[in-house]
Design a protein around this nucleic acid. Structure first.
Lengths: 220, 220
DNA sequence: AGCAGAACGGAAGACTATGTTCCACAGCTA
DNA sequence: TAGCTGTGGAACATAGTCTTCCGTTCTGCT
């Protein structure tokens, strides 16, 4: 049985019938299912993805050489979303703070972090993936630093602090996805208010280093 | 052959020799190793604990009927620490805000959350454990509400928000334990500053409910 | 000195979970 | 109708892990 794919971006409304069309739809259904399953549990078995998608195992293996391939695809997609959001934020020339805040809200909303950092370590990373990650990090740093240089950010903070905030929010898991997103937005709002306290003293302790945050791409 | 136990805090400088003494020391070593291992990875194999403790598997099974027993012990200890800290905070009659802030700092410092919520779900909970958890939750609520009633907390927040903050901080994992603790203190400080903004508007979205936070004792 | 038994190390056993392959089959297409 | 693409799902292989078990070491007491 073929699912009516919920969510997901439609590309071209291909003919409703035909085997090719059904297969194409399964492409989407499978990706969406994989995203949902692995975001909820990065160590989930591949059979859980098939179940959630309402397809058999072979439908997965026809599309991906193995589990790692699927994981890499999801991770790469997440990274691309991250990059796109960062570029969008950088193109906002008006308010550096709002650009940063909006960027963070969109990243959290898209649950990009669960797709990148949380998945890293469950597969052997690719050269290509490494480049994308580096690019993503660089862009995010620019978004952050621009807000810093505009004097809109509490002193003592750096880009790695931002990454850690993403980490923390991605660890929040409630009943369903929508409720989780609500709560994450709520707590992100709290954090943003803390980051905006430009006249507050720097937070205690030595700040996180880029290396400490990057290391996780190989660890676990 | 018996290992020369490395590290481990000595309680009473009992006779340096004697088999009984070594066994008693192993009690400590094993518990400490289990804490460290399961805090780093709640799904770690029991052999990892033995390795870290520098003892054989049988040293564990002599003390605990099985893996779950050990997990329950750790969880119960964590809960008791939590309760003790909450009671200490309640006995501070001077500054409700500082009592709350200090409570949260100590809970995060002791990494209690990794011992309770993060471990829950890896074993079948006990009746006793449920009571302890309920008591812990009740006390924490009192600590929080006292600060609220003193007008020291930003409007719109509740005890479950505090639990979620613990969740988020417990998800932070860096190189070693000390560094992790540093960073957690840092980000807790940020969050506390956000909670202290009494004249800021309530954070967006419907607040978390106690049920949403409690549910995790049975889930997974 | 010598023995009983506590405490232990670690291999072997028993299972479970999971990634991957394989094959028979359905439905479109020509 | 023949053939090919896409599929379902059982079967297989394997790695990981909990638990048991047995031989060994060392202590404490007689």
């Amino acid at each position: 049985m073929f699912h009516s794919y919920s969510g997901g971006m439609e590309t071209t409304p291909a003919p409703m019938s035909g085997r090719k069309a059904q297969a194409a739809r399964n492409d989407q259904v499978i990706l969406e299912a994989a995203r949902a399953v692995f975001v909820a549990d990065p160590d989930a078995p591949i059979s859980a993805v098939a179940e959630r998608a309402g397809v058999g195992i072979s439908a997965l293996y026809r599309r991906y050489a193995g589990k790692e391939d699927l994981l890499r695809k999801l991770c790469s997609d997440g990274l691309r979303t991250y990059i796109a959001e960062a570029e969008a934020a950088l193109s906002d020339q008006d308010d550096p703070w709002e650009a940063l805040a909006g960027f963070m809200r969109r990243v959290v909303d898209a649950d990009v972090h669960s797709l990148t950092i949380n998945l890293a370590g469950t597969f052997t990373p690719t050269e290509e993936l490494g480049r994308e990650a580096a690019r993503a990090g660089g862009l995010a740093e620019q978004v952050f630093d621009r807000a810093v240089q505009a004097g809109a950010v509490r002193p003592g903070l750096n880009t790695s602090d931002m990454s850690l905030i993403f980490d923390q929010l991605a660890a929040l898991h409630l009943g369903d996805e929508e409720r989780t997103a609500q709560i994450r937005r709520r707590h992100l709002a709290l954090m943003l208010d803390a980051l905006r306290l430009t006249s507050a003293p720097p937070p205690p302790g030595p700040p996180p280093t880029a290396e400490e945050v990057t290391r996780r791409w190989t660890a676990r």
